[in-house]
Amino acid sequence: MADEASIDTSVTTGEGVRRRDFINIAAVSFAGVGGAAVILPLVSQMAPSADVLAESSTEIDISAITPGQAIKAVFRKQPVFIRNLTPAEISAAEKVDVSSLRDPQTLEERTKEGKTNWLITMGVCTHLGCVPLGAGEGEVKGEFGGYFCPCHGSSYDTAARIRKGPAPKNLEVPTYEFSSDTVVKIG
């Protein structure tokens, strides 16, 4: 290579070097930018597609749920629990000293105003994502009367707050609104 460089002396003179180097560096940089830009579609194609995103809100009819009952619905391919609390369950939840909780929240904060009896939470344990028991007819509700996760023994109370076991957080309350007295729109 040594003799090749010496054939063309203009390469070694100051101005030539800089101009030529600049073009080579610019060309390689363009290639780099182009290569990096190609990554964008390759990465974003794995993100949820338009049809998946379109199903991210669900409307559910809650007229048939009597106090004390709960249903499991599906929201974003995950279970969501909709529970009509009895007055006893509400007062049990309100009696708890919030400051003693692992994830301090009152029942009011977890429900809509005037609809405190409607407890709507994701049916996904905040520990490792199992589906807790307690929504179905005859299922174990755990020692706090809410939900019980059989995977690692997390117990939730009647406001679906974590009381015992490894789960770090209360069951998540999704964004929702009441479209009417009998229909709730989740998402």
Binding site: D8, R20, N24, V28
Partner: peptide, 12 residues
């Protein structure tokens, strides 16, 4: 740019 760079490299 690639063309100019190629010309540079091959100049000699």
């Amino acid at each position: 740019l690639a063309y100019l760079a190629k010309k540079n490299v091959w100049a000699d």
